[in-house]
Simulated assay, not measured.
Amino acid sequence: MIITNDQELKLYNSYRVASRCRRAFFPETEKDFVTIYRNYADRKKVILGGGFNVILSKPFYEEDFIIIGPAFSSSNIIDETIVEAEAGLDMKSLSELAKANSLVGLEIFYDIPSSLGGAVVMNAGASGIEIKDVLTKVRYLDLKDLQIKEILNEEIGFEYRNSFFQRNLDKIILKVWLRLKNGDPAKIQQDMERIKESRWAKQPKDFPNAGSVFKRPRGYYVGTMIEELGLKGLSIGGAQVSEKHAGFIVNYNNASGQDIIKLINVIQEKVWENYQVKLEVEQRII
């Protein structure tokens, strides 16, 4: 395990917001997680996975950050169709692992910016497919008693962009098991490339961002509402409503976390005033 002081966090959040924390841990084993909470209990801890769905609101954090990334991302195929992977593995690598083993079920997650742990926490998905559709079991650390436990899919209480782990922040995902199906690798590759091409055509890739900012309200399209209100291209500080897709906010000029949050607030107010729709933020504000 690596432990650092005064850690720069810019490279650990996809908005590329400049921020620092007083101390950071980079765990490599499950035992490392237990050690962190047992031996370094002097400060509050913040869990950061791939940093793909978060907004760092402060320029400096007194809290410790636990950064779950490449150092904790091993994976394995068991029983031919079961993928076993640690929480820090990114979804692109996971979908490529499935393709390499002719396994179907993760194509939609190709090019989705997320770690596996983060995808489970928020029940990530697209086009009507969600991680819950292929997940069988999760291994996690329970901070109440520092015991490592396992929970089955049906016990997790998955909802749209929500799960047991989002409602219980004292449970840290360590490992995930996914059940896939055998398929044609050429067809899998074709589907992955089609999905990527479709995303790149619609979504902003030229500036740092963290994906869709808001959850989709029933009966409405967020991007359409924002665009109809003439908010496309609206900026506060270095944060801007994407000119390519109004459902995204981009960091086009060294935005701070507060720039992004202020822009979110303006969008929410305008949408409420004109549509009486309360937009719920999908991204996690730290």
Rank of each mutant, 00 (worst) to 15 (best):
M91V: 00
R179M: 13
I55C: 11
I267R: 02
D79G: 06
Q190H: 12
F207C: 04
A246M: 10
E150A: 08
Y252L: 04
K215F: 08
L143W: 06
E243F: 00
F25T: 01
L279A: 02
K262D: 12
F109E: 06
I249V: 11
G183M: 11
F52W: 04
T81L: 08
Q268H: 07
I195A: 03
N251I: 01
N274F: 06
G238K: 05
E30M: 11
R161K: 13
D142K: 02
R16F: 04
V134T: 14
I156Q: 03
P185H: 12
V281D: 09
D32L: 05
V222H: 03
L48K: 00
T4I: 06
S95C: 08
K31D: 15
I67R: 00
V121Y: 07
S114K: 00
G233W: 00
F165Q: 04
E96P: 00
I77Y: 11
I108Y: 11
N39A: 09
I55A: 09
V250A: 00
Y275T: 10
E282T: 02
V271P: 01
F109D: 05
A24H: 08
E28I: 12
L263I: 07
P113Q: 10
E8H: 12
L103I: 12
I66Q: 02
N209S: 15
G125C: 03
N76T: 13
G117V: 01
I2A: 09
C21L: 07
L229K: 04
P204R: 09
E280Q: 14
Q7N: 10
I66E: 04
K144G: 15
K205M: 14
P70Q: 14
S93A: 14
E96N: 10
K31L: 12
I195Y: 12
G50N: 08
K202I: 06
D64Q: 06
G219E: 13
F26Y: 15
S127T: 05
S115V: 00
S242H: 07
G128R: 02
P185I: 13
A126F: 01
K58M: 07
I148S: 04
A124E: 07
N251P: 00
N254S: 15
L231A: 09
R22V: 10
L56I: 05
S115P: 00
I188W: 02
R179H: 13
F26R: 00
G233K: 06
I226N: 04
N153D: 12
D133Y: 04
Y140S: 07
N13E: 10
K262H: 11
Q240A: 03
Q258P: 01
D142E: 12
L9F: 01
P59Y: 04
G238T: 07
I47R: 01
Y140I: 05
I148N: 06
L152G: 08
A255K: 02
G105H: 08
F52A: 13
E8Y: 08
A119H: 01
E269Q: 13
A201S: 11
I66D: 03
V241E: 07
Y40G: 02
L9H: 03
Q203S: 02
A71Q: 13
G257P: 04
D170P: 01
P185E: 14
S95N: 03
